[in-house]
Amino acid sequence: MVELPFSLIVITHNEAANIAACLDSVPFAAEKLVVDSGSDDDTVAIAQAHGARVVHQDWLGFGPQRNAAAAHSRHDWILFLDADESLTPQLSAELRERLPELLNSQAAVAILRRRTSYMGAPMRWYRPMRGERLARLYHRGRARWTDARVHESLRWDGESVDFKAPFDHAHNPTLAHKHLKVLRYAELKCLDWNDKNRPVRMWQTPLVYLSAFLRDYVMRLAILDGWRGLIVSHVAAAYAVYKRIRYYEMRRNPASIEQARTVLRRHGLDR
């Protein structure tokens, strides 16, 4: 297969179960780069066995970690995938067909569509998991990730192009995995809020749950996915509330920041 001059980059920490499928789904990338933040499983060995160059980078937060990873790329055009994501055969074919023109253009980014499996099967109606539009392929001289610790996004100057075929996201295998991620992501988000001295506004908490639940369950059509739609809407709304009550605790008891960091580190959730 002809390689194309772009880099596939994956940032990892203990992704031995996922990294091979992710890397193997992009056989036409001229470079596969894994930026690892200290895995103690077989992530690094598996990545190297599947053709990746591995670079160590201590954890900086999602946005800074992505920007640091991009600096290690041997090519200006970069495709970022998470370790639990992979290209579908349809998107692979579309990329091979359209990438030569894109790589020689003045465009800044390409928008890809992500479809997500939840509780072992694809979501059919819930919009964020059916065809979420994400900027994941970009020219590093024309785009840059925000510096947010979590929920980072790509910012760019210039034109964007859209690809039609989706890529796959193997969402958290169980709700236990999801809730552990909630603890980690909420902590990072609250630290960002704390840095910005954001007001607490605990009085909004009941309204936050209701509005977040109704947004996902009704407006984003989760209701049409049956019980799984109810569950995904509740989990999203509960996360929105937990961030706020954890932030309240953080502001009221600053010592809880280090205490939480210690317990999260003990369970491998501090990065």
Results as ranks from 00 to 15, higher is better:
S117T: 13
A68Y: 13
R114Q: 10
W156R: 08
A135D: 08
A170K: 10
G158L: 03
W77R: 05
Q65G: 07
D84G: 11
V44Y: 05
E101L: 13
R133E: 08
R66W: 10
R113K: 14
P166N: 01
P100D: 03
F28L: 06
A110K: 04
Y126S: 12
P122M: 05
H139L: 01
E31M: 07
K164L: 01
L103P: 01
H75M: 07
P128L: 02
L154R: 09
E159V: 05
R130T: 15
G63P: 03
Q48L: 01
L102H: 09
P27N: 04
V150H: 00
H75W: 15
V26L: 00
T88M: 09
N172I: 00
K32F: 06
H50Q: 01
Q48C: 05
L91N: 09
H151Y: 13
P89R: 06
L103T: 08
R127N: 11
R142V: 00
S105E: 01
V26S: 07
V55D: 06
L79I: 08
A47W: 07
E85A: 09
T43C: 02
W59K: 03
I78Y: 13
R53S: 09
Q65N: 12
G61P: 13
A70P: 13
W145D: 01
Y126M: 04
V44D: 09
R98K: 15
W156E: 13
W125P: 01
A47Y: 12
Y138G: 05
Q57R: 14
P89Q: 08
L33R: 11
G120C: 07
D76L: 05
A47T: 03
A49W: 07
R130A: 12
A30S: 13
V44E: 12
R53P: 01
D40W: 00
M129V: 02
E159I: 03
L95S: 06
A45H: 07
L79P: 07
R130Q: 14
G61T: 02
L91R: 14
A30F: 04
H169N: 12
L91M: 15
L95W: 04
L134F: 05
H139W: 02
R124K: 12
